[in-house]
């Protein structure tokens, strides 16, 4: 096909847009405008405002000390030991949660991607934790870890892992495992659902062809399943990592960041600073730092993805 450059308007030809043209041009915005307006007002404008807060002193409890302070908040952040602890905790919390959620979710997806009796009902039940409200997951797991009414400390003591059935959430060395356990419980279904969908989109005759070619089950998995899943894995792991790093609910409810900040992650630190101290300037500075870290992470992951994912 020979593509010509757009023809210019010949003399005498009118270029007036027809009513139908306008109808086609304007119509999508009629459907879109409520969404765009709401997102702009409730999310994008506050986002910009939030970033500007990080350069201000806005403490509701201290109204006299209000105004632009430049990089003071960031300077305070740099010398804030709690910030650095929270940063380390964020890494540990995110890596442990994502790894366990992904590994167990992949296992579940593989198990569910074949026919067996009662598959539909098993699938529904196993995905159920995903529907449990997060605050309730947090409370349930906090109770499970409670030595008075929860069985877990007793089981761990019986297995010899704990010396006595103590409160794990009260032990600075172990407390992080509480929210991580709740998070894994809550998050496995997400990975299982997305990976199961990806598994089901792999054409079955590929496996038949591989079998004809003499591939073993393990070879089928590494040569067909994994490459096909790779794009989905990349995108879900990236989205989920960002989501989990931002996910403060479980920690806030289960431990409130304690004991002694042992479970404080950056996002819960943002929330407690804003909610308990009403220090919006400092909270926003922490949030901006978190955003920066996430952007760096996303950029790195996208680069890696470009390199390795071929399909």
């Amino acid at each position: 096909m020979n593509v010509r450059t757009p023809t210019t308007v010949a003399p005498g030809e009118t270029r007036a847009r027809s009513p139908l043209y306008w109808r086609y041009a304007v119509e999508p915005f009629v459907y879109l405008s409520p969404a765009v307006i709401l997102i702009t007002l409730v999310m994008l404008v506050p986002l910009v405002v939030g970033i500007s807060y990080s350069f201000q002193s806005i403490a509701i409890l201290n109204p006299l000390k209000t105004g632009w302070v430049g990089f003071d908040n960031y300077a305070a952040l740099w010398s804030d030991g709690k910030f650095w602890t929270a940063l380390g905790n964020t890494l540990w919390w995110t890596v442990a949660s994502v790894t366990l959620q992904f590994g167990l979710g992949l296992g579940l997806a593989l198990l569910l991607n074949r026919h067996f009796h009662f598959r539909r009902i098993v699938q529904a039940l196993v995905f159920l934790p995903w529907a449990v409200p997060t605050f309730l997951s947090a409370l349930t797991w906090a109770w499970l870890f409670n030595p008075v009414i929860g069985p877990i400390p007793h089981w761990l003591a019986a297995l010899g892992i704990l010396a006595e059935p103590e409160n794990i959430l009260g032990d600075p060395d172990l407390a992080m495992w509480g929210p991580i356990a709740a998070n894994v419980w809550f998050g496995i279904p997400f990975f299982a659902i997305t990976l199961l969908a990806a598994l089901q989109s792999i054409p079955g005759d590929l496996y038949e062809a591989a079998e004809m070619d003499g591939a073993s089950a393990w070879q089928c998995f590494t040569k067909i399943t994994l490459p096909f899943l790779a794009p989905m894995i990349a995108i879900t792991v990236m989205l989920r990592t960002i989501w989990i790093a931002n996910f403060a609910d479980l920690i806030f409810v289960m431990t409130g960041g304690g004991p002694a900040n042992a479970t404080q992650i950056l996002s819960s630190y943002v929330f407690t600073t804003a909610f308990r101290k009403l220090d919006f300037g400092y909270a926003s500075a922490i949030a901006v730092a978190l955003l920066g870290l996430l952007l760096v992470y996303a950029a790195i992951l996208l680069k890696i993805r470009q390199k390795f994912v071929k399909i």
């Binding site: 030809e13 027809s18 009513p19 139908l20 043209y21």
Partner: peptide, 19 residues
């Protein structure tokens, strides 16, 4: 599909902007 230019007539009546 909207017509980008020219005229389309049915029975002598211009149809470009008729739904």
């Amino acid at each position: 599909e909207p017509i980008s230019g020219g005229d389309f007539l049915i029975d002598g009546e211009r149809m470009n902007d008729v739904r």
